[in-house]
Design a protein around this nucleic acid. Structure first.
Lengths: 205, 205
DNA sequence: CAGCCCCTGTACCGACCGGTCTACTGGGGC
DNA sequence: GCCCCAGTAGACCGGTCGGTACAGGGGCTG
């Protein structure tokens, strides 16, 4: 827990590859389901390098991967929101994107955070904290967007929380049912409701 | 989906204890996080008995546990719905109940299905199928209730799916954030919306 | 061109994983 | 009264787990 948190995670570097592949494995198998050996062979990195860059072992690596996944999700959201101009449309794009991932992976790649979050009860504090922070970050980002779109909204945080919960749940349902239908249904209804709530008397944006 | 799949799972019997403790462990740790030895010691059953009653090993046991968990959730839902008289109120009671579980377990016990569903990509077909069936059962139960409460509703299945997704997501969020706030927020807003959608011009039930 | 040191590669470790096997026990049917 | 076998008990298996130790290696310094 030194001040220098994760400086050496350049995309192509050894730590970078390690974190990226870990994030991918974590996404479809969860923490206990993703073996260290599997991560190593998939990223083409020997064990010695792992413990050089991440003395904390699997937990530290997972924590970093969770942070990167969260950052990726937030970045995607910001991008969609900027392009679409409304939170409702951004949510739709967001769901579409993860529906694609799901379908392309034969319904193995769900939410990058969900698999780890679901078993957070059996995880080290390091990872546990990171998962909490990741969720807060995601909710906070939505809340900021909502407040920006309609400064008069009474409770942006509540709406943001509802959005994240709905999307997260839809992703889980989609994975379990092996169908993108839940995502389509939820995003459609959710987007409409967000628009209605953000612009009570106006154009649905 | 045979009518008689697991006849020997009486509550107090050896298979019964096995399935119940497995369900509990699965709920907080997921499939790979719950060790077989741990299940055995927690239920006070030796290994020989396990493989006598469940020749399929851990996967068969987990599949059975998932089925039992799903049945329990459905039963709780039906009970709440019967007592409350409206789907909206039932959802609220449903969320309250799982919020209690969460808080009582120091935020380890989330949705009994979520942890397994989240890592379903790395599971045997047996378990995978059971998780899908469980989710379908849950959604179907909600849909039936909705249709019963308002036969004119245009798409009970869609609303049911949205409900399950929202609750599932709220449970996940609550577990990650170690707070029941997401559940409270989501259930409140969800219940209100369900009432509005089921009784467009009338009493909010 | 020598030395150093960050990083890599790999052999190895004990613990534990899920699963198999066999010995034993006790109670109901004949 | 005997037997039989469903059910229990636990020793044991190979494999894999996450983690450690240490011997190179190679590029940047001097």
């Amino acid at each position: 827990m030194e001040p220098r948190k994760s400086p050496g995670s350049a995309p192509g570097s050894t730590p970078g590859r390690l974190v990226t592949t870990t994030a991918a494995l974590l996404r479809e198998r969860g923490f206990h389901g993703a073996g260290l050996t599997e991560i190593l062979t998939a990223s083409g990195v020997p064990k010695g390098s792992l413990y050089h860059h991440f003395p904390g072992g699997k937990s530290e690596l997972a924590a970093e991967a969770v942070r990167q996944s969260a950052a990726g999700m937030v970045a995607a959201l910001e991008r969609f929101a900027d392009r679409a101009g409304s939170t409702g449309a951004a949510v739709r794009a967001f769901c579409d994107r993860y529906a694609e991932d799901l379908a392309a992976s034969d319904f193995r790649d769900g939410c990058p955070l969900a698999a780890v979050a679901a078993e957070s009860g059996a995880l080290h504090e390091t990872v546990r904290r990171e998962i909490g922070a990741a969720m807060e970050l995601l909710v906070g980002t939505f809340a900021r967007r909502i407040a920006a779109e309609n400064p008069a909204h009474p409770d942006p945080a509540a709406l943001a929380m509802e959005i994240v919960a709905a999307v997260e749940g839809a992703l889980l349902l989609a994975k379990a049912l092996r169908s993108t239908a839940p995502l389509k249904t939820v995003s459609e209804r959710l987007a409409g409701r967000i628009a209605a709530e953000l612009h009570p008397r106006g154009h649905p944006a």
